[in-house]
Amino acid sequence: MKKLATLGVMTAAGLSAGAVSAATLDDVMARGQLNCGVTTGLVGFAAPNANGEWDGFDVGVCRAVAAAVLGDPTAVEFVPTTGKTRFTALASGEIDLLARNTTWTFSRDVDLGFEFVGINYYDGQGFMVPKELGVSSAKELDGATVCIQTGTTTELNLADYFRKNNLDYEPVPIETNSEAQPLYLEGACDVYTTDSSGLAATRAAFENPGDHVILPEIISKEPLGPLVRHGDNEWGDVARWTLNALIAAEELGVTSANIDELASGTNSPEINRLLGTEGTLGDMLGLDADWAVRAIKAGGNYGELFEKNIGENTPIGLARGLNAQWTDGGLLYAPPFR
């Protein structure tokens, strides 16, 4: 009797295990909530604010996807992940979408079996040193003690860079940003290295940000983007085109301020298709017609998200740089909506 029951439970669980991998979109809709993996806390990208609500650039992507799929930008469960746990969390189905400034690399895409749905921030690894050391270039760092935030591609880039330039260094691996900070400030390491956006965010939190300089060398390409599990193309499409919708909205001049007006119909067919007044793009995704309207309304278009969270008027103060629209000399280039 008992054995039979156990067997039944096992079979049921097994069946559901086999079935779940394919239809994340249905799961999310049935659950009424998107599980989104973010960092454990990096101001500007994803960090809980004073009220305990998550805020930031990556968080904005999660909210946009939730708004597009579920119609509610707050229907997101944010799962803080570390460099170590993020891939397991995604692979095991604990989260549906990982938006945790993760670098798009060949092996992650191919070997680990994930699908990067696009790039939401073009980054590169940089160095921060105290001004008093008088260092102006990374080439002068021979013999320095370098604090590295592990769990990203940083160690590898650093090893490659110093090897290539025939420099010697002493690596000090640190698990999280908050542990690295006191080590660097107390002088236990001369240099702190991580993605330059992370450096800017870290420096912004210092008591005297002016005492530290970020060196001009960017030693790696770090295209950061959200990712999903491999093999579930419907879900991947939803995430990819939500991100593209945010980027395209900025290019087309659709903002959270004027979107209601534009959504009633314009004479630009591309905007109409994007906002669902023309064509059936939403249907093709398995969503309704004004999915993109909701996604853009959630936190604004790409440019608005950027300005609000990490732009020049925030403490982090990042310039658009590579992350400007292609029309402004940047790399952001959303495929056409048709």
């Binding site: 779940v20 095991s92 189905g93 604990e94």
Partner: peptide, 13 residues
Amino acid sequence: NVVLAYFFPPDAN
């Protein structure tokens, strides 16, 4: 932290 999740069905949560 990183392994146990593989041993349960994905929707066990």
